[in-house]
């Protein structure tokens, strides 16, 4: 009987030394509690998931690129101002499109999106001193220069959509409505950096120590 217990103790030590403890770091693919061999079509089912791989397509991707000449099923984007930042005669549109209501909600949304996608380069203040400038980036645009203060909203929209100079397109990250929200926030930043005493409402002057 003693030998049975010795054998059991040996097996416990063997198991622990082979399998180790919970939580240790490892690089090999995780073990399956229900291996695919014995439980086929359970953990890994014959379906494609986003950004997954495929053995069927030559390029190995489950996500398929759009075929040439494909037509979007989404509603037609015929509002040039809203979707391209241009007026009917092809000029950069000034001001915001009619479909976008410029209100506090839009600016708050713009602030959030700006902080995520724009601030790393252009800085929280829009002065072009984002974190990338500490890594030999060069000079991201400073929105408080005259060029950008006088730039039509439509041209800023186009820059976000298609990029400009060293800036790449952010069209995949910001939908058109978000791009207008960001523009509204950039306009707010520009105004904040060039504010005059008269811009402060009377009831807030005392808080700021202005007479």
């Amino acid at each position: 009987m003693r030998y049975a217990y010795f054998t059991l103790a040996f097996l416990v030590v063997l198991t622990v030394s082979v399998l180790g403890f919970r939580g240790s770091t490892f690089t090999r693919p995780p073990m399956m509690v229900f291996p695919d061999t014995f439980f086929p079509e359970m953990n890994h089912q014959a379906k494609y998931k986003p950004q997954a791989s495929s053995t069927f397509f030559a390029d190995g991707r489950a996500d398929r690129p759009l075929p040439a000449g494909v037509v979007s099923r989404n509603p037609l984007r015929d509002d040039d101002h809203l979707y391209r930042g241009k007026t009917a005669n092809g000029q950069w549109a000034k001001g915001f499109p009619a479909a976008v209501a410029v209100d506090a909600r839009l600016i708050a949304r713009g602030r959030e999106r700006y902080t995520i996608y724009c601030a790393p380069c252009h800085g929280a203040l829009g002065d072009g001193k984002g974190i990338v400038t500490q890594y030999n980036w060069g000079a991201p645009a400073n929105f408080h220069s005259d060029v950008f203060r006088s730039m039509p909203e439509g041209q800023i929209f186009d820059t976000i959509t298609n990029g400009a100079k060293t800036m790449f397109s952010y069209g995949d990250k910001l939908v058109p409505e978000d791009r207008w929200a960001v523009i509204a926030y950039v306009r707010a930043l520009q105004r904040a950096q060039n504010a005059r005493v008269n811009d402060v409402e009377a009831n807030h002057k005392q808080e700021l120590g202005i007479k």
Binding site: L19, T25, T27, P30, M32
Partner: peptide, 15 residues
């Protein structure tokens, strides 16, 4: 102890 994601998955850090 072993047949659970607490063991099989926690700590997975592939190269």
């Amino acid at each position: 102890y072993y047949a659970t994601p607490k063991y099989t998955r926690v700590g997975y850090a592939p190269v």
